[in-house]
Amino acid sequence: MRLLPVAPSIVLLALFMVGPVVWAFYVSFTNTALTGRAARAPQWVGLDNYVDLFTDRAFPLSLLLTFVFVLGSAVIGQNLIGLGLAILMTRANRVVRAVVGTALVAAWVLPEIVAAFAAYAYFADDGTLNQLLAAIGIAGPNWLFDFPMLAVILANVWRGTAFSMLVYEAALNDVPPEITEAAIVDGAGGAKRLWWVTLPMIRSSIATNLMLITLQTLAVFTLIWVMTKGGPGMASSTLPVFAYQEAFKFQQIGYGSAIAVVMIVVGAIFSVGYIRMLRPERDT
């Protein structure tokens, strides 16, 4: 009885979160389509969709692109730049910190679709980046067409770095100054201090942040969709874009669901790692 207030949340979560996940597994074993006979009476096709996935050239490519996107824009880009910025920020002039902090956070606060428009205009053939390059005498390429992955990775770094920076700033502020001072007294230089003292102290923040931004980046759809529509061809179709195209453009819901299942499983693996770090029983 005392648990009754939890009931509404269980109903909502069961219907709209657990339901779709179970449904995805089920549909991925059928040939469900949006139109035609397969839409009215979908048939059980067993592992066909998965066999197709792994024999299709498009899927391994999409998996690889997703990996490159997550590694490039989250693990390397947002994470390292965010850490670097946080370290610079803690020792910067107060005015600089306030102004630059606002500039960085602005890109993160904007709705994703607006950020995507801004990034599109920036990387467009006739856009700001090429305008800047032209100013120093370089004829820039058509970024969105010739280097679509680089463009979306940079755009995602631009949009997401502020989050990592905020997490690391908070973590760095929690490092007791006595410890850093002790290291200085012992004669440790800046780089050594960072590597042997500061980074180990904020280890858990780094792990949490990495896990969170990996999961977020794995799910990015809008940014890529607005900038390149996954193209040219398949050249920037990460898993969310690929699943969308298969399901809605080519109307293969069953096949799209199989891709969804792969994404859910990849997400689940990361989630387990993340949950092990947070462990709810520790704070009860």
């Binding site: 996940v21 689940a268 989630s271």
Partner: peptide, 29 residues
């Protein structure tokens, strides 16, 4: 309660689930 821990684990797991991944099944649902 015995129920708290598994529920909190499920909640945490839910925070991680990429929503873009479930949109295709949600649509057909």
């Amino acid at each position: 309660s015995r129920f708290n821990k598994p529920y909190l684990y499920a909640i945490l797991f839910g925070t991680c689930l990429p929503i873009t991944a479930i949109m295709v099944p949600v649509y057909s649902l």
